[in-house]
Design a binder for these strands. Sequence first.
DNA 1: ACGTTGATTTCGTAA
DNA 2: TTACGAAGTCAACGT
Lengths: 224, 224
Amino acid sequence: MRLVVARCQVDYAGRLTAHLPMATRVIMVKADGSVLVHSDGGSYKPLNWMSPPCTLREGTTEDGAVEWTVTSKTDDTLRILIEEIHADTRHDLGVDPGLQKDGVEKHLQELLAEHPGTLSAGLTLVRREFPTAIGPVDLMCRDAAGAAVAVEIKRRGEIDGVEQLTRYLELLNRDPALRPVRGIFAAQEIKPQARVLATDRGITCAVVDYDALRGMDDAEDRLF
Amino acid sequence: MRLVVARCQVDYAGRLTAHLPMATRVIMVKADGSVLVHSDGGSYKPLNWMSPPCTLREGTTEDGAVEWTVTSKTDDTLRILIEEIHADTRHDLGVDPGLQKDGVEKHLQELLAEHPGTLSAGLTLVRREFPTAIGPVDLMCRDAAGAAVAVEIKRRGEIDGVEQLTRYLELLNRDPALRPVRGIFAAQEIKPQARVLATDRGITCAVVDYDALRGMDDAEDRLF
DNA sequence: ACGTTGATTTCGTAA
DNA sequence: TTACGAAGTCAACGT
C-alpha cells in the first residue's frame, strides 16, 4: 500500500471520460496496482479510480512534469498529472483476513426455508430458488391444502419487492400444473405503501422476526 | 484528511453487523468526520466505513487499549480497536473543484434523439423527456405509419427498465389521442431476463452502439 | 424534505 | 466463467 498526498490533475477515459481539475488529493495505490483518488469529502467512493487488474507506469511529460498512467486490460486509462507531492509513504499491510457479515437476505432465506411454518401455519417447503424464465422465486411452498405458494423475501419490504413477486405469480399462474399460486411477501420490516399494494393484489404480508428465527435454529441445534 | 496505518480490529453494527479480525489496515478520516477502513486489495470499496454525518470519539478500553467509536445519527456504530499505530498523518486538502463527466446515459439519450432511425427504420422524434403523470418518457417518437412509439433508454438493460417502460405504456395507452403506443427498450447491453420479459410484453429490444452513434454525430458536425 | 433514477457502481452466488 | 440480483449502496435531480 502506497499513500501519496499531492496536488494533481486526473483524467479518465474508458466507459466514459472524466476530468478532475488540479487540486490537492490523496492517491492510494494498492498492492494489486489499483489506484484510488480521494478528496476530503464525499462518501466512501473515490473521485476517480482504476480497478484491478491494471498496471501503473510512472513517467514524465515533455514539460518535465510527473505523470502516472494506469491502464487496464480493457484499454481504460487513468492519467494523473502531479504538480507537487506533499507526502509519499509505503506500508506493508499483509493479506487481510476479510469481512464477516451477518443479517443479510440470504441468511433470512435459509432460516425461513427451515421454518416455513412461521410464515403461515401448515406451510411446507418445495424448494429454495425455484427457477422461472424471469428469475428464481425465493421459496416455493405448499400450504396445508396442497396449493402452491410463492414466497418473496426481503430485508426491507418495499414496492419493488411486491412488483417482483407479482411478476412471478403472473408467470406461475399460467402453468396449469401449478395454478392457483398465491403469494407471501416476507420481510423484517414492510413499508406501508408496499403493504397496501400487496394487499390490493391479494398478496399476504408476513413480518419476520430475525432474532426469533435464529433462536429457533439455535434451539434445534442443541437437540442434536 | 487524516491517514492512519494501524493494526486494528473493526466492528460495525447498523443495517447489518460486520466484523473485521485484527490486522494491519489503512484508516482514512475525512474532514466531515467520515471514516474509511481500507485493506491492500479489493476495489474502491472500503472493508468497512461510516458515512457522514457522523462523529468520531477517541477513547481507551478498560484494558487501556485505544478504541475509536464512530456513531451516526441513525445509531449505526463503527468501533475500531487499535493495537498498534504505524503511521498517523494529517493533511489540509481544501475543497475539491469536483468531477466532470461525459458519456453517461444522458448523452446516449441526446445521441438517440438526433438519430432515432437507428432504433427502428423510419422512426422520427416527437420530443425528449415526454412528460407523464408518473415521470418523463425518455423519447416519444412516431413510426413511418404515424403510430406513437415510447422509447426507454438505459446504459445496461435490466428488468427494472422493462418495468418502467411497461408502466409508461400502460398509462399512455389510456390516452385515446395517442393509442396504440408501442415500446422500444434501448440499451448498450440487454440482459437475457430483461429481453424475455420485454418480448413477453410485446416490447421491442434495441441494442445501441454508443461509439457508432458518436461517430455519426461527428460526421454530421463536419458537414457544417 | 422526499422519492426516483443512474452508476466506470461493486460484490456475492449459482448456473 | 458468466450472469444475475442485492447493496450499510451513494449522489444527483425533480417534486
